[in-house]
Structures are given as C-alpha cells and as structure tokens.
Computed example of a mutant assay.
Amino acid sequence: MAPLQSFDESALTPATTPSATEWQPSLVLPARILALPSPLSFFCILRFLKTQKRTGWLDKGIANAETISDHMYRMAVMCLLAGDQPGLEGVALDAQKCAIIAIVHDLAEAIVGDLTPCDQVPQDEKHRRERISMLFLSDLIRPHNPRGAEILYESYIAYETGSSPEARFVKEIDKFEFILQSAEYLDDIAHGGEVKADGLDEFYNSSDARKKIKTPVIKTWLSQLDETFATTKSFATLAEANGSK
C-alpha cells in the first residue's frame, strides 16, 4: 500500500485500507514521517489531530467543523476549571489527571481517524485499531521518555475502561463538550453565521449524551446551558439581557 500523502477519513474506509486482520498504523502513516527520529515522528503524527475535522459534524454538513484537537483541548481546559471537585464517589478529583486523560483520550484518531458507524468498521475492530495505535505511539516516545509513554497508554486505557474516578469524569466532560458544541453551531446558524447544517437539534437534545452526565458540577454546567439556550436555540436572549449583541 502506497504511503498516504495526506491523512483523512476517506483513506481509512474498508475500501482502501488493509483487511481487518492486516490493518496496522505503519500501513496508513506516511513513510516520510515514520522515518523521522523520536520524538519528532510522534509530534508530526499529532498534527493530524489539528487538521482532521470531527466526522459527526461533517456528516451534518458543517464544512468548517471543529477538529479532533479542538475538541480535546477544550475538554482539557474544562477539566482544569472544574478544579478538585468531588466525583460521583464523593472523592475529590485530581484535575491534572483529568486534563491528561482529556488530551489523550482521542489521540489514536490521529492514525485511525474519527470513525463512525457510517464507516462500516465493526466496533471491536475500531477498538483494536485504536489500541494498537496507542501502543504504536507509546513505542515511538518510549526511547525518549519511558514514563511519558506509560502515562500516554495508561491514560488511554483508563478512559476506555472507565477504571478511575477521573476517567469517568472525563467521559462526562466529553458528552458535555459535545452538547455545548451543538449549541454553538445552532447559535451560529440563528445569527447568520457560516455554519449551514440541518439536524443539529438531535445532537443538542441527545438523550444518550445527557443521561451519562451525572457529576454535580457538570450537571450544573448543563443546566446553565439549557436555561440560557434551550428555548430560543440562541444565546441572544442572555446577550440582550446583558445589554450586548
């Protein structure tokens, strides 16, 4: 298989990738990047998170959609701003651990892509690709920073398995950030912005996302969002009340 000249989701569909049993990160990443020394190769792979737009928004017709790194960055800042709030277990969360998990949880998508059911990749195969991609990335930086490699992979596994209070908190942050982004796109549409899309209401009102938000501080954020946005599908009401536009 020829090295990819650019990394996009179409390059990862079943029609163009190796079979499920053959798929490996080294087969889809550009050879010129794989040839770089560590940690430069790792840094260059991270670039794909900055350029690859999130599939769910593209499927809704949002051309200028957020990228994977956009999503993870705001999640990480949210984790820090949450401070050492108590999690569902009532124990204070480690905000720094939460932030690390947030900036790692979708890291494998730099290689795998932001796969959705439309890509027709079975869930078990999707998870296998993500796991071996995280092992691949960890191996890239291990010669440079062994402990960093461990943190990278352990944080990913914690998120996937929900094995710590911090990981479970970040899963809820992921859902809240998704709902907030939906609101922002709807607000942009309401004010004649560049976003042109249909069906975003189902994302904002997603019962699947909302029912997973249980931690008090995130529930408070969601209530604040609903109180200022849900009725008008716009932030205009709040802005007008504050004397701005």
Rank of each mutant, 00 (worst) to 15 (best):
E154H: 10
M75N: 10
P14Y: 05
L49R: 12
L200A: 01
T220N: 04
A82H: 06
L222G: 00
E184Y: 08
A11M: 13
G56L: 15
Q24P: 06
A149F: 10
G87K: 10
T16I: 15
S69P: 08
T51M: 10
I218Y: 04
S41D: 07
N145W: 06
T237C: 09
D198P: 00
C118F: 07
V104M: 07
V195A: 04
A108T: 01
L58N: 01
W221F: 04
E202N: 11
N145V: 05
S19G: 13
R147W: 13
F235T: 02
Y153E: 00
S164M: 12
A239R: 14
W57R: 01
M134Y: 10
I33Q: 08
P25T: 00
T51L: 14
L88V: 06
I218H: 02
S207F: 12
K245V: 15
D70T: 08
R54M: 15
G113V: 03
S138W: 12
L93H: 03
A65K: 02
L180E: 04
A65L: 05
G90K: 05
L81H: 15
A230N: 06
L4M: 13
R168L: 13
L152E: 10
W23S: 07
L34Y: 01
A197I: 02
L40E: 11
A15R: 14
S244M: 05
R142E: 09
T220F: 02
Y73I: 09
F48C: 09
L29Q: 05
I62D: 01
S10K: 06
A99T: 07
D114H: 04
A239V: 07
S223P: 03
K214W: 06
I173Q: 11
A230F: 07
T51R: 08
G162M: 13
T228L: 09
I218E: 11
I62C: 01
I101P: 03
F7H: 10
F229Q: 08
K50Q: 13
G199P: 01
Q5R: 15
C79P: 02
M78D: 10
N64K: 02
Q224C: 02
S133F: 06
A239L: 12
A108Y: 00
E227L: 09
D106Q: 01
C118E: 14
P3G: 01
A108L: 03
N242W: 14
P143I: 09
V77A: 05
A63M: 02
N145D: 15
M78K: 12
Q181K: 15
E184T: 11
I218L: 14
A82L: 03
D124I: 07
F235I: 05
H144Y: 03
E166M: 04
N205C: 08
D59M: 14
P39N: 04
N64V: 00
I68P: 03
L238Q: 12
F235P: 00
P143R: 07
D94L: 13
A76E: 09
T16R: 14
L186E: 04
N145S: 11
T116A: 08
T67Y: 09
G243V: 11
P3D: 01
P86Q: 11
